[in-house]
Design a protein around this nucleic acid. Sequence first.
DNA 1: TAATAAACTGCAAACGTTTGAATAGGGCAA
DNA 2: TTGCCCTATTCAAACGTTTGCAGTTTATTA
Lengths: 343, 343
Amino acid sequence: MKTGQATIKDIARELNLSASTISRALKDYPGISSETKRKVKEVAEKLNYRPNAIALSLRNSRSYTIGVIIPEVVHFFFSTVVSGIEEIAHSRGYNVILTQSNEKMEREVSSIETMLSNQIDGVLVSYSKDTTTFDHFTNVLEEGFPLVFFDRVPTIPNAISVLVDDYQGAFDATTHLIGQGFQHIVHLSGPENLKLSKDRENGYRDALKKNGMKVNPSHIISCPFGSVEESRKIVSEILTSLPERPDAFFCCNDSSAVGAMMACRDAKLKIPLEVGIVGFSDWQFCTMLEPQLSSVYQPGFLMGAKATEILIDIIEKKLDPKTMEHSLVLETNLIERASSKRF
Amino acid sequence: MKTGQATIKDIARELNLSASTISRALKDYPGISSETKRKVKEVAEKLNYRPNAIALSLRNSRSYTIGVIIPEVVHFFFSTVVSGIEEIAHSRGYNVILTQSNEKMEREVSSIETMLSNQIDGVLVSYSKDTTTFDHFTNVLEEGFPLVFFDRVPTIPNAISVLVDDYQGAFDATTHLIGQGFQHIVHLSGPENLKLSKDRENGYRDALKKNGMKVNPSHIISCPFGSVEESRKIVSEILTSLPERPDAFFCCNDSSAVGAMMACRDAKLKIPLEVGIVGFSDWQFCTMLEPQLSSVYQPGFLMGAKATEILIDIIEKKLDPKTMEHSLVLETNLIERASSKRF
DNA sequence: TAATAAACTGCAAACGTTTGAATAGGGCAA
DNA sequence: TTGCCCTATTCAAACGTTTGCAGTTTATTA
C-alpha cells in the first residue's frame, strides 16, 4: 500500500487474480465462485477498498453530480431551496456541487464553465441580479444539456423552470391590505431584470384595479437591492414627500419590509393601526418581529425538491425536455400576521 | 460530433494529428510548430472543446474539489461560513461539494464515505449534534487525509481546527450583564456533546466568579435544540418557578435569546429595564428586533475563509499537519445593543 | 476414453488526458 | 553518399473501472 486508496488492482495482486474477476466478485456477478467472492470481499474489507468514483465517471461519462448556481448562500430563501435540492439529490444518489454567483454575472458564467468541465450531469440555476444576457444558458441548452431554472427564471425558449406564483402572491397580499381598509398602498418593487419583480408588480396593480382603485405610478418605488437600509431610507423619504401619506407597504421581500417597519417606527407611526406592512418570502424572522410581519410564504424546500426531481428525471431520460411541461408553478400562501391586521 | 462534448481525439481526427500533439499544442509546449498550434486552437474553438476534468482527476489523482460537511445550510452562521469557504476555494481553483448532515451522525458518516469515493482532495467538517463517536473522522485522519474542523471541533488528537474563542465571548457577555447591574443571570446552555457549549458555559461561570458572584447550578439550564420555541417555553417556566426571578439571560445562541425575549414579553417584563438578554452569534435579525438584541459576534466568513486556506495549504503541502499549529482561535466581539443596556 | 458441457477466470479495450521515449523526415556538412 | 542533428510528430503506457469475448480447468456423459 503505497500512497492513498487501495484499488481493485491491489486486491487482484494480493489474491493473484485479475482485475476483472475482482470487479465481478465485488458486484456479485454470476460466474464467479462463491469461494472467490468471499475472499475478494474479505481482502477488500481489509484494505479498506472504496470504488473510485472518478474512474467510474470517466468510464460511464456520468458523474452522478449535479451543479447548483445560486446568487447567495447567506439568504434564507435560497438556503431553504438548497436544503430541498440536497434532500432529493442524495436520496437519488447524486452529489451536489454548489457555487454562488454573489449576484455577479461573470461568476455565473465561469461557474457554468467549470461545472461542464467537471462532467456534471445537470445544472440548477437561479440567476443573478446582474445577469443581463443569457447566452451562457442558451448555449448549453442548445447542446441538450440538462438545465432547470428555479425562482429566478429567464424568459428564453425551451427553458424548464420551477417557480412560485409571484403574481398571485402579490395579488393576494395587496387584496388583503385593501380588505383591511388601507387606501394608499405603496409597492416597493424588486430588481428590474428579474421576471418575478414584474410579476409581483403586476399582481399589485391588478389587485388595485380589481378593487376599483387606480394605480398611482408614484406609489411604485424601486428597491433594487431589497436591503433593510435601502428601504428604510426610501420609506422615510416617502412618508413625508408624498402629498398623501402612504398607509400601507407591500414589499418585494422581507428585508425591505423590515426597513419599512423601521422607517415607520422612526416616524412614530403605529403598525398596523396607521400603517400596514406585508413582505414576501416569509423568512424565519417574520415571527420574531414585533409586531409579527405578514408575508407571502414561498415553498422554498419544495421548490428545491421539485426542481431537482425534474432535473434528475431529465438526466435519466424519464422526462423529455422537448415534450414536457415547461414550467411548474408552485402556490404561494399569504400569512396574515399583526403587521397588517387591523381587525 | 456524436453525443456531447468534443474531446482531444475529435480535434486530432479533424486535423489528422495524434492526441498527444493536440494536448501539447493546447498547452503551448515547445516542439510544436506554431502553424500546428494555430490550427489546433482554431479547431478547439470551433468544436467548443472543454478539457475533461474527470479524466484529469483520474490521471493526477487530484480532483481540485473539497468537501464540506455542515449540520444545516439554513442557518445564518453556517451559510456565512460556507460563503467564506466558497470565496477562498474558488480563488484558489477548487470546487466545493456540499452536504448537510441535518444534525444526524449517520448522514455525516455516509457523506464522508461518498466524498472519499469521489476523490475529494480534502474535507471541512462541522459535526452534528447527534455525533457521539468520532471513528469516521479518526480513520481518515490516520490515513493522512487532509481534514480541517471548524466551529464545532472535536477533542481528538491531531485534529486541525478553526474556531472562535467561545470562552472569551461568553465571559465578555456575562461580564457585560454584570456591569449593567443584573444580579441573577441565567445561562441557557447548548448541546452537551459540543465542546463549544462547555466553553461558553465555563466563560459564564468564570465571569460570575471573577465578580464575586457564586454560580447557582439551577441557573444553568440546558437548551439542547436552541430553538425559539424550546427556550420560550423553558424561560416562561423559569420566570415563575425559581425562588428569585432571574433578571438576565445569557443564551447559547440567538434563537434561544429570541425565545427568551418572547417569554419575557409574555410575562410583561420590560427589556432591558427588568430583564437583560444577550445572545451568541450575532445573526442578521438581531438588529431587526425591538429592542435590538445584544449578541456575541462570531466571524463566520473569516472562519470559513481561514479553514479553507489551511485545508488547501495542507493539500498542497504548504503546511504539514504534523508540525503546524493545531488550532486557530478567532476573536469574538460582544455587540452591545438595547436588549442588555440599562445605561 | 474421448468428446462436450459447465463453471470459472483472464485478456484487452475503452473512457480522456498527459508525458517520457521513440520515430520520421529534412537539411547540412564532410 | 553517408552520417548527424534538428524539428515536428507519434507511440504507448498510465490513472481505475467495466465488460464482451476468449481461454482454461474440471466434471459429466456417451
